[in-house]
Design a protein around this nucleic acid. Sequence first.
DNA 1: GTCATTTTACACTGCACAGTTTACTTTTCA
DNA 2: TGAAAAGTAAACTGTGCAGTGTAAAATGAC
Lengths: 210, 210
Amino acid sequence: MTSTTRTRSDVKRDAIIQAAKQAFQEFGVNGTSMDKLAELANVSKRTVYNHFSAKEELVMHLIKEQWQSALVDIGAPYDPQALLADQLTDLIMADINFMSGDEHLELARVAIGHFFYEPTRLKDEVAQLQAQEKAMHRWLKAAKKDNRMVFDDIEQVVEEMDSLIKGQCFWPQLFKLEDPLTEARKLQIAKGVTALILCRYGVNAPHRTT
Amino acid sequence: MTSTTRTRSDVKRDAIIQAAKQAFQEFGVNGTSMDKLAELANVSKRTVYNHFSAKEELVMHLIKEQWQSALVDIGAPYDPQALLADQLTDLIMADINFMSGDEHLELARVAIGHFFYEPTRLKDEVAQLQAQEKAMHRWLKAAKKDNRMVFDDIEQVVEEMDSLIKGQCFWPQLFKLEDPLTEARKLQIAKGVTALILCRYGVNAPHRTT
DNA sequence: GTCATTTTACACTGCACAGTTTACTTTTCA
DNA sequence: TGAAAAGTAAACTGTGCAGTGTAAAATGAC
């Protein structure tokens, strides 16, 4: 058992972080007073300030450290032997699982809500996420080199896939406009996106010139 | 000339509305005090309260009345004579022009920022926008009946198009992550979406079973 | 020119909330 | 077991801001 958080201090700290994550994502940073937060964490307000010298520091801890550590490496390199459709669906599923996972969604809600009116800072935070797209990038490039896909502008393809995925698995969930996705629904979406992309850019499909 | 706003009262009122739209979208409702707002509008604070009894009322005026009146009817019914691709590109262009128009973008920023942590109210506001999708809906249905498109689930097709459009013409602009779209770029995106959708659901394309 | 309406300046109330201080208690661990 | 470290409750400070009250001044209709 590596998990038992040791000192009482650590236990309290975790309680604060969990309560903050929960409250900030639900009511927003401005909608959560430090008194309310302390109460939710079952901790005295002074203890909160012993761990985080200011509210903003707590917010930044969530956005930087916690969100950082929620990042997942989306693996699976291109495999010339396997079916394109299967590989792509797997890649997309991995992306969907990350994007629509509770941890990511909650922290994204905190970050986006907090930086909504500060485009510069928001851009910085979002930038680190774009790294996730690199796996898709590499895979597409390999599939093209292997002559199983055809496209001029890889950025366009990535953007189209990204839009399709986020539009169905991220934005509606971020704003709680829709219920969380079931596994079946995720797979259905992944297959839909795969079909769309391969139909257009897979080698068997007819192409229209841009 | 129908435009000369008559009474001085109306002039002031307009100044307040314009200043509020500008300030709320840039700094957020909470980030704009009534004193600051009055100053921006070149109006005394008391005058603001003479026109709108509370801050929230001003916000709701922007979101309800102003946003309402920014709605555009996206016309063009299905035409069995014309090329599918041309018609669809036109429809999408109309959608893009609306979605990424300054008026819509600014009011959306006010509304989404204001209701970020109130999913229920946000859902209501967003719902009225979905009406815009009806034109696309009708067109797709007509094209299917005319045997020039094939699909099982029209909702899926609409959602895919919507994701593609918003992902490239709305979300990045809403958060000011990207520069405003040029006309050329809009057309490029519209053609990209058209190609993707027709390749998959147009009658000449090969189909994969879901 | 006069009277009603509207605007303005500015002082004022009340509240919510970030952050601090104090006096006291509990936990840790050497 | 006892001293250092961490936690607690509650009162307190200061600030920013929504909204009000008031008396004087500008505007406009007739």
